[in-house]
Nucleic acid binder design. Sequence first.
DNA 1: TATTGTTATACTCTATAACTATA
DNA 2: TATAGTTATAGAGTATAACAATA
Lengths: 173, 173
Amino acid sequence: MPAESSEPREAREPGAPPRPDLLAVLPRITRLGAAVSRGRLVERAAEDAGLGRDRSAVGVLVTLRTAGEPLRIGEIADRMQVVGPHITRQVQLLEKRDLVRRVPDPYDARARLIELTDAGAEAVDRYLASLLGWFTDTLADWPRQDRDDLVRLLSRFADDVTTRLAETDGEEN
Amino acid sequence: MPAESSEPREAREPGAPPRPDLLAVLPRITRLGAAVSRGRLVERAAEDAGLGRDRSAVGVLVTLRTAGEPLRIGEIADRMQVVGPHITRQVQLLEKRDLVRRVPDPYDARARLIELTDAGAEAVDRYLASLLGWFTDTLADWPRQDRDDLVRLLSRFADDVTTRLAETDGEEN
DNA sequence: TATTGTTATACTCTATAACTATA
DNA sequence: TATAGTTATAGAGTATAACAATA
């Protein structure tokens, strides 16, 4: 690993050329995002799990599954970073397919809690097993240390970016 | 690989069961992707650089910039992983704004090469400096070793996933 | 006949606006 | 009056189909 010398941060003026390694990462990340979000991997995992082709609806199920408890419409929307009406429609479709159900919120009669049915929980578990299995297989040849480092650093990176992004977006108004 | 395709999917039996830390990474990555792709960070960087709000068009400019040379419509589409007609329209819009121009392809009269104008090159450089600067700032507090590891591992991960995804998508047809 | 690109059209995902019911 | 959710509508981004020109 060549520990090339580069100057510490903060020496960044507008218009200054970005670091070459960052510039090289950008197209890779973009391609990765496009391949996963528009490619057939996710779609096929969803179909194999009996979830059909609706990516947004799958997102709702995964959100409920990782939450581990019933959530309100607004909470799902927040976690998925989309607006409420979008979730309303997805939940309606999922309800028709008996993958989720609505139960009253004991603390607020305006709201309903969205809950996975048994069928929904089983389907989303099959989906996650398939998808995560694919990534596990992809990383199978990596040294354990590298895998652990990737998971650790990527998690921290995602958290840092999300946090800073929320601040940045907020202070603009 | 003649690949008996009666059971190509769901080839996930032995190997490695999905690890819990992977399950924890998934929502983070999803949120990161949503925040970057739908949030205001990219949009604002593009506006500051004088590129307007059109994300796809910005993608075309970045693709040309990182390629370092004029590209054909089909080549841009391949690199962005979208279909040709989409690029045709983006390039038409960019041409109207004098950010790119078309020049004849000396080797094939059917094709044109798409080339950044000076104005286009300057704008995309401002955009990239702004965007990458934001990420550099976000990583500013990280230990040097962690930053280097992240860039290295994330690049390799993106390459591995993209490669394997291309194989997987391909063998399905 | 195959390939490059364009035109026209349709679909998916998500947002905004206006509204209802409860707090 | 403010909040949770719904209905209806609009927009951005991308795909598919049919076609033109050149190889």
